[in-house]
Write a protein that binds this DNA or RNA. Structure first.
Lengths: 250, 250
DNA sequence: CGCAAAAACAAACCTTTGTTATTGCCAGAA
DNA sequence: TTCTGGCAATAACAAAGGTTTGTTTTTGCG
């Protein structure tokens, strides 16, 4: 089984054997964490940053009125808090949505590694850029799409992100979000999520039961969402290449 | 007059004299750009990335139906596309909102600089982390706050960000956003922006005329928005320090 | 100065989404 | 087995914000 985090970095930047080995060294001995466990609470001091080698987690904020907004979905291979000032404090919480394999990397270790291998620093910066792009796409999603479009977009995006770290990714996805979670990702209420989920089902586009999501018609979902994967694609270099992506996405 | 970009980096990470000089070297000979000029169009190839030394710009996406969502407000000292893969292509557009001073930095130059001064790489990564934090706060803003709260939050955030690069920042701000622009930042319609702007004025919290924004009651705005500046604060290291920030923000 | 274009303001009416409440189902604990 | 709690489904009603349209101010410019 492949190291999902390493895969991410390799998408982000060209790495040599030495660098690959050094990164794998860092990920020895992950620990297992159950579902619904906090990986970080507000105010925690972060001397190290976590990497999710497998499983799903969510990073979110809680407002005074108790409302929750999930700001990132953390999928296999994702790291978080790597770009905080070392020794800063956490200002968002992170909770696992499924059992996870996690490894923690001390900021100091990563810094040493980057001093030795600048390409890894480049890869981390580039990985950060991708996280950035996903966040921007969420702003667009919540700001300018209606409920159905938002759901369709989230499904397309998640499916695509998973396919980047799992070559065998099928149309059948492990999808541990409850309707409450979905609501907090998309800036809607659980009731409305339910309504629109029904609609997607009735139109034959997806099935979703007991954390198993099946995509029956990705093409139409992309159509509804106006999904364009280029913001997620590692190193898209030309307009032509992007056109190709748009076409073969389905 | 101080180099706003350098200031940002110095907030993000400790820089020595050599590093400071090297960054200033990069920013020689900025060019002047008028308002409403494109700094990047969809599909542009980015061999270099721009830094805004003065003035405002907006980075946005356009959906198929013509709707626009601004994903970042670029203020003095901000850089963009620095975290793309070098030689990647732009997938969002950037337009100036006021006359700007801009300098372009070749990715290759920056890379060389970072190889020589790892602290600058660290600073760029950390700066990227702050952009990330702002994006997440926008997701929360658009996802979970109502119109009035969103406006209040944007005002607080912008005021705070400006104060980081201008020590003399007063309650009187140059604020070049039109109501249409505000709508596209906050995920609302211009009409509704107008309604809520009226409300803020009537309650005596702000004045806004001909691009001059005056904040009469920051305290109450922060109250309405639930604004907590710690996500913007350079290197907040302890919970105690954050408490202090929350209190003195006004 | 005077004009055209852009921006701001206003009101009526409509749509999407939120609120509240109730019910049923299923998996895991006792 | 029965109980419990989390999750999903559904309905009736309320509210926030969108749409459309038109008027009035500002602003920039010849």
């Amino acid at each position: 089984m492949f190291n999902a985090f390493l895969l991410r970095l390799m998408h982000a930047s060209e790495l040599g054997d030495q660098e690959i080995q050094a990164v794998e060294e860092l990920c020895r001995q992950p620990r297992d964490v159950g579902a619904k466990k906090y990986l970080s609470r507000d105010g925690d001091e972060m001397h190290s940053f976590p990497i999710i080698l497998s499983g799903w987690a969510a990073r979110y904020q809680i407002l005074r009125n108790g409302a929750r907004q999930i700001t990132r979905l953390l999928l296999p291979g994702d790291a978080f808090y790597f770009d905080c000032s070392p020794d800063g404090i956490a200002i968002e919480e992170v909770i696992t949505l499924s059992p996870c394999k996690i490894v923690n990397i001390a900021h100091a270790d990563m810094r040493r590694l980057i001093d030795r291998f600048p390409a890894i620093g480049e890869a981390m910066r580039s990985y950060g850029g991708m996280e950035n792009a996903v966040l921007a796409s969420w702003v667009v999603n919540v700001g300018r799409r209606d409920a159905l479009e938002r759901m369709a977009h989230l499904i397309c995006e998640t499916h695509y992100r998973l396919s980047l770290v799992d070559a065998h990714q099928s149309q059948q996805i492990f999808f541990p979000l409850t309707q409450d979670d979905l609501a907090d990702v998309l800036g809607l209420t659980p009731v409305h999520i339910n309504r629109k989920l029904q609609q997607l089902r009735q139109e034959g586009l997806i099935s979703l039961r007991s954390k198993q999501l099946t995509i029956h018609d990705l093409r139409t979902l992309q159509q509804i969402a106006g999904f364009d994967p280029s913001y997620l694609a590692p190193r898209v270099q030309t307009v032509r290449e992007r056109e190709r992506l748009r076409v073969i996405a389905a």
